[in-house]
Amino acid sequence: MNSPPGTMQPASSLAQGAATPAIDVHGLNKHFGDKHVVRDVSLRVERGEIFGFLGPNGSGKTTCIRMLCGLLTPDSGSGTCLGADLLTESARIKRQVGYMTQRFSYWEDLTIRENLDFVARMYQMGGRAEAVERALEGLGLQDRAGQLAGTLSGGWKQRLALAAALLHQPQLLLLDEPTAGVDPSARRDFWEELHRLAAQGISVLVSTHYMDEAERCHKLAYIAWGTLLAQGTAAQIIASLGLATWSVSGSNPPSDISAALRGAPGVAQTVVFGTALQVSGTDEVALGATLGKLGRDQPALRIERIDTRLEDAFIYLMSHARDPAAQSAAA
């Protein structure tokens, strides 16, 4: 194995780790034809951080991730991945990044072992056989190493894909909806593994639709229509929106009050949550007045102030952000 300057060397990359963030990109743009799918996205992910990437379907998450690992060339923007320039050093980036695609994209007509061995060869790994054995052991798949990857269940495919993405000991993991379609216990195991990796100094950028997963990330970014709407820790994102939230319970069904409150002063959104209705708004005073009036009209209701949850914040972000194409047309 040859190691030209810039290939991964544990010692040097640790030294680098202190100096440069894992991902530091500014003003990324990408068009597909005349569709502007990513608009001026800037991201900063520190070393050893688990960074959650959230947003509705088609918001540009996958496109962003593909630009970060060199699968797509940004139309404009600049930045670095693990200290390597995004535009000119994609070969260097590829060597140190582990990428897990949204759809299982290993070779279904190769066995588990053959897939891992192939990946090891692509990264010119030394001690290939041991690395593959270690990965198989970690997966607990030594007995089934000769099984074709296509015959694995969804959960096992996902674990194989993670093991393959980790095989060359990358410094940065890019995971595109890794837990879609995976059962809850497998998801929990998966996230424990991610936290173990982060503790070792590996940075993780993971896109997800699950709120419980978002809450397990160190930092989050929320993207819609290709535009980054919020970035920071969960607490920072919630605080930045200035949402006040009340829980209204005791009415059956809660959707009746929801209809009554829609459009009332101060009410930005209502979300049914079990038997309770959560009402949020940015104008705390107006919302308080509206709910006070509701309490007087229907004394049976229990109305209490609660903390705004991440989910409320994201629902608020999604419903209040407009498609910039439509916005610019209006302006």
């Binding site: 060199g70 590829k94 990428y99 759809r103 994209s105 290993y106 692509m122 010119q124």
Partner: peptide
Amino acid sequence: ERGTMENLLATPV
């Protein structure tokens, strides 16, 4: 077509 190209392109090959 099978989506494995994405994987191949993500490696340094």
